[in-house]
Design a protein around this nucleic acid. Structure first.
Lengths: 242, 242
DNA sequence: TTACACCGTCAACGGTGTTGGCATAAGCTG
DNA sequence: CAGCTTATGCCAACACCGTTGACGGTGTAA
């Protein structure tokens, strides 16, 4: 079997597959993303991936230590894509806001991949770069290191968490999503005011909101909370030095 | 096979299992929860659950339509537990904070169930009660209906999203979690300051934080952001009436 | 006591990730 | 161009997984 995984750059002898294709880390990942998009998150398996590549499933173990390793590679690829072409403005609130929206969107571009990989630490290059960028924005905004680190975690994990949540919903079969929506309408939009006064009072608003992701709202609230914290810290610092 | 699932109350003829036990919806769920907690992470499977009950795996299909149905039932139980014994204080910030922490903890008590059910709308009674309670807290705090509804969604989805994210991490096999932790230490704690200055400057803090969930921080930031919004609304209302 | 249908059991199907052994061709060496 | 090494693709197999269909014993009702 695959005694050890060889890094892609160190790979010299590229032997074509029985069906003629030549494998590479890149090709495998792209095929995996295609499979995820087309077949759903349950549709990615070593065997199916092998079939899509025209290669024996076990061959993939020459490139990835296991399916786990593959999902990490996918996650890193998604992180990299979300940072590609992004330019900082110098305004920490706006920069973090746009980064959050972009990353969330990049993950949701492949909802199933988001579900699989959101909770993993890849430790690969794109992830490291992203961590450093976000930490830098916070520290240069004036947050002390302790606060910056905790804010970084809250910011990133919130983005990942919403990506996984929204991704899971997007990944559901269309008929299930439709029936869920219908359930929401029938079950919540007509509750009597006696038992559920607040739902009854806001039923229309609730239904209007039920399609969109709550991430933009949650992101802005979190950043506003961070701004309030920054003001508190500034005030304390000001009174201490005066 | 199980042509149809019979509801537990309608079940009359209880036949003991080959090993002597008598099954019930309740017993199955409790055993499943025990499996999830004790044998821990990836330890819930139909076969293992059957073995733990001293029954043939296929027997479970007389009680649940599938493993999906079982986990949804577990999730419903969890929602109920998280609200049991909770008492409002009248302080909206503290009430939402404690509700968030409690719900998050209740979900994480059984990570796999959290992962599988967080993105689903159950539409059952305890869920409806929760929605009404939270909406009520926000409206009575002084948020106008439009803001209250959006805040409700941001609050609930944030809790669910983090429950799913943290649950996914907890549900990982122990060796994978350990290797992720090790990855943080080896890969992040010793990056050179030239390429990753901000990571290098905060390496110690980052490592310290890598175990804990970021949810408490994210929750407080979100609630602080909501408070800032409330102040803005109050100021506007004050200037309008004066 | 008889009849019925509930429900536990057995066996099997098709799927999954993963591994060890093997053969062959790619590319280095001369 | 010839020969050697070994990287790498392929095959077969293992141990799981969720799920289903057929069967038959047994508790309950009539």
């Amino acid at each position: 079997m695959a005694k050890q995984v060889v890094s892609d750059s160190a790979r010299k002898r590229r032997r074509p597959t029985k069906q003629g294709g030549v494998l590479s880390e890149q090709l495998i990942m792209e095929t995996a993303l295609r499979l995820l998009r087309h077949h759903g998150s349950a549709g990615l398996s070593v065997r199916r991936l092998g079939a899509a590549l025209g290669a024996d499933p076990s061959t993939l173990y020459r490139y990835f230590r296991g399916i786990d390793d593959l999902t990490l590679a996918i996650a890193d690829e998604l992180i990299g894509r979300s940072f590609r072409g992004w330019e900082p403005t110098g305004d920490w609130w706006r920069d973090l806001h746009s980064l959050g929206i972009r990353s969330h969107a990049a993950y949701l571009d492949h909802p199933q991949a988001a579900v699989l990989s959101a909770s993993r630490v890849s430790g690969r290059t794109s992830e490291k770069a992203a961590v450093d960028t976000i930490l830098g924005i916070l520290r240069e905004a004036g947050f002390p290191d302790g606060a910056a680190v905790r804010l970084y975690r809250a910011f990133v994990d919130q983005m990942l968490a919403f990506a996984a949540l929204d991704g899971a919903e997007l990944a559901l079969p269309e008929d299930v999503r439709e029936s869920d929506r219908q359930l929401w309408r029938s079950s919540y939009a007509q509750l009597p005011a006696e038992t559920h006064p607040h739902i009854a009072a806001t039923a229309g608003l609730l239904v209007d909101l039920s399609d969109r992701s709550a991430y933009p709202d949650a992101l802005e609230l979190l950043l506003d909370g961070a701004r309030a914290l920054l003001h508190r810290l500034d005030a304390k610092r000001g009174s201490a030095t005066s």
